[in-house]
């Protein structure tokens, strides 16, 4: 009797220690994400801040001239910031309306098989790698823009915006569609009973009811557009001009990527500072996104 009890006790003890070991292991795994975020932030800040202090915050952020390899170098990144902002806004200007109309069609109007087919197309568009978009842009969009507007070179802000608009479209469609599907049927039934037609109901009742989800999709799209590098690098022309619709431009992302391989000294540090600015933008977008989605949950 006594023997079995102690045996059980020792087994229990062993089980408990095994339990504790695994609990700790899982806790450590859980901490990895936090550690990565902290590491990334610290490394970006440490390598990004020196150039900003050396150049001067205002000169860096609002300087309109970027000439990193000139004899008397000048490091102003306003051209990149504005290009990123214009490019993103331009892309959203096209893809938000198209995306919302497409999402409404998918969620509310399309017959089953058609909806399934279009949805498949949207998912596949989202899955195409950005270099493939870049290649397509280089070979199709850039030459067409050159011919259409009679320009010496088609690699400019306009072409990049078109490519970005296509790339952002799927995230807007699928996120908005999910939001539209979540609208309670009673809302729509109420509107129909009051004599509105189905189409009117969908646009005047369902769409406003889904607005926070639609807004989320737009913010997601903004994040994707502002962070896109490779596709833009292949079609934007990569010259550090102040943005103009038919000018060769550099985005924040491509400014980092295009000089990294041959940079050194202050120029290299300044590239890290650009990345830090971009990182800051992205964090701001994340904060807005989080506010939006948590608000949706409370409802």
């Amino acid at each position: 009797m006594d023997g079995t009890v102690t045996l059980q006790k020792s087994r229990l003890k062993k089980q408990k220690s095994v339990e504790n070991i695994f609990k700790t292991i899982f806790l450590i795994f859980g901490m990895f994400s936090i550690a990565f975020v902290i590491f990334i932030s610290i490394f970006l800040i440490i390598s990004g801040v020196p150039a900003i202090t050396k150049i001067g915050f205002f000169k860096f952020m609002f300087g309109t001239k970027w000439a990193s390899t000139a004899a008397k170098p000048s490091f102003g990144i306003l051209p990149f910031i504005l290009t990123s902002v214009y490019g993103t806004c331009g892309a959203l200007l096209v893809s938000v309306p198209v995306g919302i109309f497409c999402a409404v069609y998918l969620a509310k109007m399309a017959p089953g098989p058609v909806a399934a087919a279009v949805r498949e197309a949207v998912d596949l568009l989202a899955a195409i790698p950005s270099v493939v978009y870049g290649l397509f842009g280089m070979i199709i969009i850039v030459p067409s823009v050159r011919k259409l507007f009679n320009l010496p070179d088609g690699a400019n802000l306009f072409s990049a915006t078109v490519v970005l608009a296509i790339m952002v479209l799927p995230s807007i469609i699928s996120e908005s569609e999910t939001a539209l599907r979540a609208v309670p049927k009673e809302y729509e039934e109420g509107s129909l009973a009051l004599g509105a037609t189905y189409t009117e109901t969908v646009f005047k009742v369902s769409l406003p009811a889904a607005r926070s989800g639609v807004l989320t999709s737009v913010i997601l799209g903004t994040g994707r557009a502002i962070g896109e590098a490779m596709a833009v690098m292949m079609v934007a022309g990569n010259v550090a001009n102040m943005p103009g619709i038919f000018k060769s431009v550099r985005f924040l992302t491509t400014a980092v990527a295009s000089e990294m391989s041959y940079s050194s000294g202050l120029q290299r540090q300044a590239l890290f500072s650009i990345a830090l600015v971009l990182f800051f933008f992205i964090i701001m977008i994340n904060v807005v996104l989080r506010k939006l989605t948590s608000k949706g949950e409370v409802k």
């Binding site: 859980g30 962070g227 890290f272 971009l278």
Partner: peptide, 28 residues
């Protein structure tokens, strides 16, 4: 609280653009 912090970190990671990952990977 810890769960919320971990989830926030994961969300942040999923929002970081790949060029930033490239740079951070290079640095780290």
């Amino acid at each position: 609280k810890l769960v919320r912090v971990i989830e926030l970190a994961t969300e942040t990671l999923s929002g970081i653009p790949s060029i930033i990952y490239g740079l951070a990977g290079m640095l780290i």
